[in-house]
Simulated assay, not measured.
Amino acid sequence: MTFDERLNAFIKLGEELRNISESQMDEWYFRATSFNNWFTRESVKQSVDAIGQMLEAEKLIKWTDHYPKQDDTHKVVGLVMAGNIPLVGFHDFLSVLISGHKVMAKISSQDPFLIQQVSNMLVEIAPAFDERITLTKEQIRGFDAVIATGSDNSARYFHQYFGKYPHIIRKNRTSVAVVTGNETEEEIKAIGQDMFQYYGLGCRNVSKVFFPEGYDFNPFIQTMESFDQLRDHHKWVNNYDYNKSIFLVNGDEHFDSGAFLLKESKQWVSPISVIFYEFYKNEEDLNTKLESNQALIQCVVGKDVRFIMPGEAQKPELWDYADGVDTMKFLTEL
């Protein structure tokens, strides 16, 4: 396949995903949630819609114009995919194929169905992709390079197993929000979306908020009442009840919205149903906290031009690379 053939296939895939029928979305949800109870119809639709928008022709062309365009190579790139949110490994899948390499992906047991369906759609559009895509639940072998995503613990294993190959290995990261006290109610709600979309399970979900000293939490928590539907999910409620009981038994001060818990902490990654917060004295103090912990942060949400605007954390562009590592540069230089 030429580069243009691959590009046009993904443009067509985007069109089909943007026009997927409600009945097909229902089927995808029912199949996907059987592997991962955290997946809801809304979260599956959000992921499919986000990928459909990601694959718009103008965006794909803008993205790929920054890299060499090559015909198919004989190199095989192994992927170890996560399954914390629907289709979370799609960007790596796209990057490997559009750069001309073959994909050999170990798909997550928590999300094996959706990536297979999207792959099937792509092969139907461009049958030449069939021999360039291998999806398996088994251990992968026979690759030339690897991109692996997992926890800090699994990353240590990845380094041992994949260290001798060209690789990108991603570990735990989380996202944070910066509140100034001048946000509108809609902007606070948008930060809530960044916290609670996908039940906070993604690395681009805000798990910690920085507030200015003296901040009044009451309006913030009242605004977050619009997310009370979190209590409709039994797994979320189980985590909420458990963490609340721990805080009460230990005498830990916290705010309780009735749907989530807000607790002051120096830690960065909060448990499910809990949002950590920390105060900052001034901009210099805030910058020090953020800069000294860059290795832990996926993205920062806030009104400052340096940050991602509230409500946009789960809408990365093609060039917003996980962990700040340019995946396409890595792939085109293999």
Rank of each mutant, 00 (worst) to 15 (best):
R170P: 01
Y157N: 09
N172V: 02
V176C: 12
Q110K: 15
E186V: 06
Y161S: 03
I125M: 06
P127I: 14
Y161A: 11
F113G: 00
P127S: 13
I107L: 08
I133R: 01
D111F: 08
T134W: 07
S175D: 00
E183W: 13
Q160G: 04
F113M: 14
N172E: 07
A128K: 12
A148F: 00
L135N: 07
V118A: 00
L122C: 04
E124L: 06
R141M: 07
I169E: 12
F162Y: 11
E138G: 13
D111Y: 01
L135R: 02
D130W: 04
K137L: 15
I169W: 06
E186P: 09
G142Y: 02
V146R: 09
N182G: 11
I169N: 14
N172Q: 04
A148P: 11
K106W: 07
S151N: 13
R141V: 14
H167N: 11
S175R: 10
R173W: 00
S154H: 12
R170S: 09
P166S: 14
P112H: 09
A177N: 12
I107M: 05
S109D: 13
F162H: 03
D111H: 05
S119D: 05
H167Y: 01
V118I: 14
T149P: 09
R132I: 05
A128Y: 02
I133F: 00
L114S: 07
V146Y: 01
P127T: 10
F158I: 01
A128C: 07
V178K: 08
K106N: 01
Y157Q: 03
G163A: 04
I133M: 03
N120I: 00
Q117K: 08
T180M: 00
K102H: 15
I140N: 10
Q139K: 14
E131F: 12
V118D: 04
I147V: 10
A145R: 06
I125W: 00
T174W: 08
D152F: 05
